[in-house]
């Protein structure tokens, strides 16, 4: 039980909550997906800090599961939801 790690986790929690604004008014779908990835990284950090703060080493395994499955959602998004419908291969002209 150390209150300092819990305080660090409490500092990291607004980093997630402020990121919600980007989900609410992100212009493209990729912005929203990127914010979900920010949630994964910040959530892993919060879980690691809470593992020391609550004195429970089981939370490291939850963080491990989050880190394992973080890429899966984004890859499904790219492969199944957001692909195609582009005319050219590399469409924009480099200025």
């Amino acid at each position: 039980m150390s209150w300092m790690h819990t305080l660090f986790a409490l500092i990291l929690l607004p980093a997630i909550i402020v990121g919600l604004f980007r989900i609410l008014r992100g212009p493209t779908a990729a912005d929203r997906m990127v914010t979900a990835q920010l949630f994964g990284t910040c959530g892993v950090a919060i879980l690691l800090l809470l593992s020391t703060g609550m004195g429970n080493p089981v939370l490291l395994d939850i963080a491990l599961v989050f880190a394992l499955l973080a890429a899966l959602t984004t890859m499904t998004f790219i492969r199944r939801t957001w692909h195609g419908s582009g005319k050219k291969k590399h469409g924009y002209s480099i200025p």
């Binding site: 809470l50 499955l69 959602t73 499904t76 998004f77």
Partner: peptide, 27 residues
């Protein structure tokens, strides 16, 4: 769930929420 001192339910929620239902909804 972690704060409610139920790490096993948190593990299931992490695996299902991040690994299963998100990709299923997206596809």
């Amino acid at each position: 769930w972690v704060r409610m001192r139920a790490p096993d339910v948190a593990l299931a929620e992490a695996a299902l929420g991040a690994g299963l239902t998100g990709p299923l909804f997206l596809s």
